[in-house]
Amino acid sequence: MAEPEILLVDNLTKTYRNGQHRLTVLDHVSFSLVTGSTSAIVGPSGSGKTTLLSLCAGLDNPSSGSVILNGIEIGNLNEDERASIRNQFVGFVFQAFQLIPTLTALENVMVPLELNGKKDAANLATDLLGQVGLGDRLHHYPTQLSGGEQQRVALARAFINRPRILFCDEPTGNLDSDTGEKITELIFELNKAFNTTLVLVTHDLELANKTQRILSLKGGRVETDEEVNISG
């Protein structure tokens, strides 16, 4: 039996207005992702990668078209309803880590669970931080951690809610190649362990090639949509 679709994007268009000027960043983009798949969105700067990710993850509203995430049309929801969807089904990893500087590693990871009112947030977060190799850095603040360690915390935070889909925006962009490599491995490892659908936005073709599918954007349109033959 075919896996169900977790994300369905149909004729998605995003236009920004700047005074009299209209700038179309995404132009009638359509695709769908099945649960548990891994995909990469690639393309040159300004091709609309990040905009596509923000619309798919419910961070922004489309100008037209629709995004159905986990069976829910999110384009028509208000900000708080989308926040609830993100909290339940979505995980994020950012290039700049985006940890809350005033919270410790543990507290950063606990936030999504605490928002849900989960009682055992601290235990779950401690376990997950242990899994990403930061069992001894629980009470460190982001500024006390290296870039790689910060991204591990971000990964733990992204997976703590067992999301159905994980969006990663240039997850290794701020890291050196060795650290980047380790983080990549960890992403795929956790993705597999949690059976999450992975969407990577990247410039890095080597990283993109580790996914099952590559969507290439140019000028706001899908230029190519290719299956990747993963070996090993």
């Binding site: 961070l59 900000e79 708080d80 609830s84 993100r86 909290n87 994020f92 936030v111 849900n116 809610n161």
Partner: peptide, 11 residues
């Protein structure tokens, strides 16, 4: 923004 991103409501 991060809190909103991980699901915190505006209130």
């Amino acid at each position: 923004a991060m809190l909103h991103c991980v699901g915190a409501r505006s209130l």
